Simulated scan of single mutants.
Amino acid sequence: MATKENDHIIKENNCETKMGLPCVLKAFTSNFKKGGISKKCCREFVVVGKVCHSAFVKRTLENPLFKYLNPATIIAKSIQTWNNCLALIESPSPSA
């Protein structure tokens, strides 16, 4: 049932069209594995929005392929990735 809710949120908000595939992969790696995310991808990631981000994370956690993951750990990592991206895009670029 929850999967249908997340699918509805994703479709209703056009979540799948807001981010390019290279950045989707970086965000996925940052949320579900180990790895960072570039400032460019953070910009795209934040444009997707927190509602879409949460729906993607929840839908992925419901997928049987990812049943070995600890949901609490993944949710904490996804919040950390979101906050890191907000901080990164809000920080001024160093001047040359």
Rank of each mutant, 00 (worst) to 15 (best):
I10Y: 04
T73R: 06
T81P: 10
K40L: 08
V24W: 06
M19W: 10
F45R: 04
G35S: 01
I9Q: 03
K33N: 13
T17R: 13
G49P: 01
L69N: 03
I79Q: 02
V47Q: 12
C42M: 01
K40H: 10
N84L: 12
L65P: 08
G49C: 05
I9Y: 05
L69P: 02
H53M: 00
V48K: 02
K11R: 13
F32Q: 03
G35C: 01
L88C: 07
S54F: 09
K11Q: 14
S78A: 03
A76I: 08
S95R: 15
N14P: 03
P92E: 15
N14Q: 12
Y68R: 14
N63K: 13
D7P: 00
Q80I: 05
E44P: 05
K77G: 04
N83V: 02
S54G: 14
V24P: 00
G20C: 09
A2R: 01
S78Q: 00
E12R: 06
L25I: 10
K58Y: 06
N83M: 04
A55W: 10
I75A: 04
W82C: 01
C15E: 01
A72G: 13
V47E: 11
K50A: 07
P22L: 04
M19N: 09
K34D: 13
T17H: 13
L88K: 11
C85V: 01
V24R: 02
A72T: 15
R59D: 15
E16R: 07
G36S: 05
S91W: 00
K33I: 08
I79V: 04
I74K: 11
S54K: 15
T3I: 13
F56V: 08
E12S: 06
A55C: 14
E62V: 10
A27P: 05
M1W: 13
V48G: 00
T17L: 13
L86G: 08
T73V: 06
F28L: 09
I89K: 09
G49W: 01
V24S: 04
T17I: 13
T60G: 11
K77Y: 02
A55S: 14
L25T: 08
R59W: 12
A2C: 00
W82G: 00
C85Y: 00
N63G: 12
I79N: 04
V46W: 02
A55K: 11
R43W: 07
N14E: 10
N14K: 13
A2T: 01
I89E: 09
D7Q: 11
F28K: 08
